[in-house]
């Protein structure tokens, strides 16, 4: 939203000379140009983005049930209710936790992998990735092709306590030991049904599905770095880790910060993963997130006013996160 005023201001400051302004009398074609390239997108933006947001904000101040036109104005009562609700606080806390863990883990992993397949290869001769880099680049992108719903269902099977892949793999050594005479009970953990593991299990699934995408993003960014800088650093004796974190990373900072914002927004949503893997928000609400709880409040309980308040809080948190990340990652010259 902040982009709108800046784009409006910059042309006017250019065209400050009055002589040129005379030459730019609004002709039909110029009006058409403005109508198509400024008016239409702005209209679409206002109608489909701004107005629903304002509408949601209005509803968040009412007791609207969603089934009739009656919406009594009740001020900030909905906000008081949600912050007094332990489930909502738990959901918001989970979202904030996810907002920190998910981007950190995904982007660190994606960056390391990207470095491996671009500059991680032989330290003599031409700069190249590790052997078979091109295969890894393609293969690691595969999970991203699967829709989130499919990934949720897939991992629900993997985490199943009854013949799930994860328990199966963990039981391999157990079986081996038992063959040798030990008497250990096979592992039958319900990963999604344990308070300790449920959220971590879901995080693992999300990381698995997205790390390839961010890796490809970073690979493209690293390829765009002039190779002289890397070569020069290498000639000066920089090792791979130093190359990665002190030469490459600063040069792709913009890409990383964009990725952090994207991942952060995803972590504040998580609706699909959570509602597919733990449909009721997990045992003891251990995996509850705002978006799922909001959906339940609106569509199952028909408390649209309350749900709107939850949505408004989430939107504010999302915006705050984006502003903080983008501001923090601005380079020193920009400041």
């Amino acid at each position: 939203m902040t982009a709108v005023p800046t784009t409006l201001e910059s042309p006017s400051s250019d065209a400050s000379a009055p002589r040129r302004r005379v030459g730019r009398r609004p002709s039909a074609s110029r009006l058409l140009f403005f109508a198509v390239f400024l008016g239409v997108p702005l209209l679409v933006y206002i109608v489909f983005v701004v107005s629903p947001f304002l509408q949601a904000f209005y509803y968040s101040l009412t007791s609207w049930r969603g089934v009739s036109g009656n919406a009594d104005f009740i001020g900030l009562d909905n906000y008081r209710t949600i912050f007094a609700d332990p489930v909502y606080r738990k959901a918001l806390a989970n979202n904030l936790l996810l907002m920190i863990i998910l981007p950190t883990v995904t982007i660190t992993l994606a960056f390391i992998l990207a470095v491996m397949v671009t500059i991680g290869g032989d330290s003599r001769g031409e700069i190249r990735g590790i052997k078979g880099a091109s295969i890894y680049r393609v293969v690691s992108f595969f999970p991203y092709v699967l829709p989130a719903v499919v990934i949720g269902i897939l991992f629900a099977f993997i985490y199943s306590p009854n013949g799930g892949l994860l328990n199966g793999v963990l039981n391999l050594p157990v079986g081996l030991l038992n063959q040798l005479g030990a008497d250990i009970d096979p592992i039958g953990l319900a990963w999604l049904g344990e308070r300790r593991f449920a959220l971590a299990a879901i995080i693992a699934a999300v990381v698995w599905s997205l790390v390839g995408f961010y890796m490809v993003l970073f690979v493209a960014a690293i390829k765009a770095i002039p190779s002289e800088t890397i070569e020069a650093a290498r000639l000066d004796g920089a090792g791979r880790a130093r190359l990665a974190f002190q030469v490459v990373l600063p040069q792709i900072r913009e890409n990383v910060s964009t990725a952090v914002v994207y991942m952060g927004i995803m972590a504040l949503d998580m609706f699909v993963y959570i509602s597919v893997m733990t449909p009721s928000g997990g045992i003891g609400k251990s995996t509850e997130v705002v978006s799922r709880y909001l959906y339940e409040t609106a569509f199952a309980r028909s408390q649209f006013g309350l749900a709107s308040a939850m949505g408004v809080v989430l939107a504010l948190v999302t915006m705050l996160m984006a502003v903080v990340v983008l501001f923090a990652s601005r380079s020193k010259e920009d400041r």
Partner: peptide
């Protein structure tokens, strides 16, 4: 109760049941 029920959905639970567990 069959262990692990807290982590599964009704379809999975019912499959466990008819498979005799």
């Amino acid at each position: 109760f069959l262990p692990g029920g807290s982590g599964i959905k009704h379809t999975d639970a019912q499959a466990q049941w008819v498979s005799g567990k």
